[in-house]
Design a protein around this nucleic acid. Sequence first.
DNA 1: CGTTATTTTGACCCATGTCAATACGGGTGG
DNA 2: CCACCCGTATTGACATGGGTCAAAATAACG
Lengths: 249, 249
Amino acid sequence: MLSSSVSTDRSLPFSLDLRPRPETLRDLFTDRPTQAIGIGKAAFWEGDTASHVTLVIEGCLRLYRILPDGQRVIVGFAFKGEMLGLSSPHVYAYTAEAVTPVRLGRVAMSRFREIVDGSTVLRPQFLDLLCEEMREARRHMILVARLSADERIASFLLSAARRLGTDRDDRVVVDLPMQRLDIADHLGLTIETVCRVLSRHKRAGTIEFLERNKLVLRKMSTIRELAGWSDDDAGCYSPSRSRTADVVH
Amino acid sequence: MLSSSVSTDRSLPFSLDLRPRPETLRDLFTDRPTQAIGIGKAAFWEGDTASHVTLVIEGCLRLYRILPDGQRVIVGFAFKGEMLGLSSPHVYAYTAEAVTPVRLGRVAMSRFREIVDGSTVLRPQFLDLLCEEMREARRHMILVARLSADERIASFLLSAARRLGTDRDDRVVVDLPMQRLDIADHLGLTIETVCRVLSRHKRAGTIEFLERNKLVLRKMSTIRELAGWSDDDAGCYSPSRSRTADVVH
DNA sequence: CGTTATTTTGACCCATGTCAATACGGGTGG
DNA sequence: CCACCCGTATTGACATGGGTCAAAATAACG
């Protein structure tokens, strides 16, 4: 275990590989030391100088901020294959803490920026990631701003299914590595509310527990319906739009 | 009125100006046609192909999405000097509608990206703007996710003061161009709650109305205290941190 | 097994939402 | 200049989703 290669899909048959031109942002992490982090330990802290870009090779982390009154806001979770610190040029915007044992790859921020800035092929990839992160942030903003507890949970289950689900026998099995309190702090609810909503689903037969953290989504349609908007990123609809505005100069 | 020059701070005394190398993103908008938009008209619509980057030369716009159930979520307001569409490479993420009469500058998306991508000086500026937008989105996410109505209003007043306030006689005068419903839809509250909180402030002497949309913040300290966290972007504190994690490879 | 962390359930409460009634203000036409 | 009207704002009375507090149940871990 713990082999260092991040195993990218470089397509060269023989890899002399003395720093070949990277073709993917992930390539920047190949053949670099990896770092293991135990449950509950932090990869970096909110407010610290953002020294590295981090790739999650294995495991799950919670990304959170602590408000002055002590509340913890989990702004997201990071899973295998995702990069952290892209949008933090100066200081980390959140603390990243291991939910499960985690293995990370790291590239110094300066080096990362330098290489990306120097590569015509990496630059647009980087921009796309930033924009994607932005979309995700907006989506979540709307979720916590306006959806009911039921809708938030449904939405969360859906996104979990999308990122983690294995589809066997047309039921989607999801293994949620994080605990209830994490979910609550992520959705802007209390742990009690999370439990109650999940229990209600269990009673209704919408979901079924294999173990505490492993559940089966039956009736995806019901869940999708509950979540409403939040599945399709496209947003909503386009009403009859009267082209407006007059060019004056 | 309606002179076309966006009046940047180019420091050359004589401007032969046959497309001089732009030094600021704003420079891209100089000597280009501007567009006037009347109150309530849209500059562009959520979901439309993102054809342009837009600079607000004058006025205020509300940026919103409509959820399938009809709710309107105002993700932000845009004021003089701000650019729209930076993080929308494909389709606009929101509708932009004039709150006041507005004058805009526009640059075709393809042209914008091309020039920025070709300029070593513009590229980092562009990235910084994206990251700033990201920070702002996260901040607002936390606001609607976790703050009470009082805190949200206080936070809103502070940011209004920062962006729009004129500081005369140590009281900050703020002219809020948008109506109550806009504020409500922005903060994830109802219009009634917005009114009640403002009235309470009025009674308490924290604020004072000159006209319906022009108000004076007395007691900034009180407001700042109410808003708590949300003024300092730095976030919070850095507890004693045990450096974690063991490098294994 | 005993001990402790996590989850679940129940009883109750409160901040905000909802519904409804006025009040205000700004524009228009007489 | 005034009277009226309509969109916006304000205030009040009441309802409720989800928070809070407390206790029980379940799982995790030596």
